[in-house]
């Protein structure tokens, strides 16, 4: 058995009690942390995860290429879309729908997105009385800005010649001349 090292544990107990009570009293005289929503509103941090938007690239084009990755990543299956081919071979979403009555704002879609198109915003006030109003279509989601990462344009890296001609991106060689005779 361990030697009896604390001869008077009662003092320690009292000290603990007093510390606890002190914390309690300290908070009684503090300003409350709760706010009187909706009269008072907090400003969430920029990385707060609420209403989702679809952003545009710095050249103004739709960033989303309708790759279906966000809808695959979404644990509650609330994203659906259909891809189509636009001018110059650009892939885009013909329609894109997020059902916010199901969304749990986990942010996995934004994490999965290879083009940084889908982003979470701090706008948390999206309640509606009619549940259909919570089903957002593409026109409700698409914004006129880049959101986070304002420089990124997927098509400048993808290497299939949509924004720049084939072989025209900085990390590409000009297209091969198959009929060339040089070694």
């Amino acid at each position: 058995m361990a030697p009896f090292t604390k001869p008077m544990p009662i003092f320690n107990d009292l000290k603990a009690l007093a510390t606890g009570l002190f914390v309690t009293w300290k908070h009684i005289f503090r300003r409350p942390v709760t706010v009187e929503y909706p009269d008072a509103k907090r400003t969430p941090y920029p990385r707060y995860r609420a209403r989702i938007v679809l952003t545009r690239d710095p050249d103004g084009g739709e960033r989303c290429v309708a790759c279906y990755l966000c809808s695959a990543a979404c644990p509650v299956d609330c994203i659906s879309m259909e891809a189509a081919e636009g001018e110059g071979g650009r892939r885009y979403a013909r329609w894109f729908r997020i059902n916010f009555s199901r969304c749990i704002f986990c942010g996995l879609c934004a994490e999965a997105c290879p083009t940084l198109a889908i982003q979470m915003t701090p706008d948390y006030e999206i309640c509606e009385r009619d549940v259909m109003e919570l089903v957002y279509e593409k026109e409700d989601l698409l914004i006129d800005g880049c959101g986070k990462d304002p420089e990124y344009n997927f098509y400048r890296h993808a290497g299939i010649g949509v924004v720049n001609p084939r072989g025209g991106n900085p990390d590409e060689e000009p297209p091969v001349d198959v009929r060339g005779l040089m070694p």
Binding site: G159, I160, G161, R166, E172, E173, P175
Partner: peptide
Amino acid sequence: GKKRTHENQDLGPYIEHEMN
């Protein structure tokens, strides 16, 4: 290094070609 690129061909109504 840089990536090699190719031009694609139109192979008709059924098959899309992306040689890269």
